[in-house]
């Protein structure tokens, strides 16, 4: 069993280092890699091999999750280009975006307070639409190597991700 942990996720999945990704090829390669390295293949092997299989399969899962998610993929591309996305430290966002966030939060809070699952589901669909648009924008910025602007798009998407989680939690709280 040999595996090069220094390979990039793109390299491991035989994909070009681009935001656009061939999802079918990604899925097929994922299954191929796990079929080869999954710990189940080494369940009767020596401890050292079991441990290695665990580490490799963990890496394959990490790479797959990163490449599958547009936000994680964009962040990873920036990281490969040496650009920090500063998601935890840089909170300076454009004014119009922050206004939009406030409106989102109000709408979610309102639907949450009235336990209105339908309204929450509608917000979820709407949010999905806005997120899709932002992801497309991130892709375009990365293609043009506008990394600073792409980093802003990543930070925006992080906000959207939090809103999505909040809606999900609110729906769960209302349903269950």
């Amino acid at each position: 069993m040999s595996f090069d942990f220094s390979r990039s996720h793109f390299d491991l999945f035989a994909q070009p280092e681009l935001f656009q990704i061939d999802r079918a090829a990604l899925d097929a390669r994922y299954r191929e890699l796990q079929a080869q390295y999954h710990p189940d293949r080494y369940a009767s092997a020596a401890d050292i091999e079991k441990r290695l299989a665990l580490q490799i399969a963990t890496r394959i899962n990490e790479a797959y999750q990163t490449l599958k998610s547009p936000l994680a993929r964009g962040r990873y591309l920036l990281q490969l280009s040496g650009v920090e996305t500063q998601e935890e430290t840089n909170t300076a966002m454009p004014m119009d975006f922050l206004m939009g966030q406030m409106e989102w939060r109000e709408a979610i809070a309102e639907a949450k307070a009235s336990q209105n699952v339908e309204a929450l589901e509608r917000l979820n669909v709407e949010l999905r639409g806005e997120t899709d648009a932002l992801e497309a924008e991130l892709g375009a910025l990365l293609d043009r190597a506008q990394y600073e602007d792409a980093a802003i798009a990543v930070r925006k998407l992080r906000f959207m991700e939090k809103l999505d989680a909040e809606i999900g939690n609110a729906i769960e709280a209302a349903l269950f």
Partner: peptide, 18 residues
């Protein structure tokens, strides 16, 4: 069935479980 695979008794036609 899974034990049989993990013990290495199956050939190449075994399955993958995620």
């Amino acid at each position: 069935m899974q034990a049989d695979v993990l013990a290495g008794n199956k050939g190449d036609d075994d399955w993958l479980l995620l």
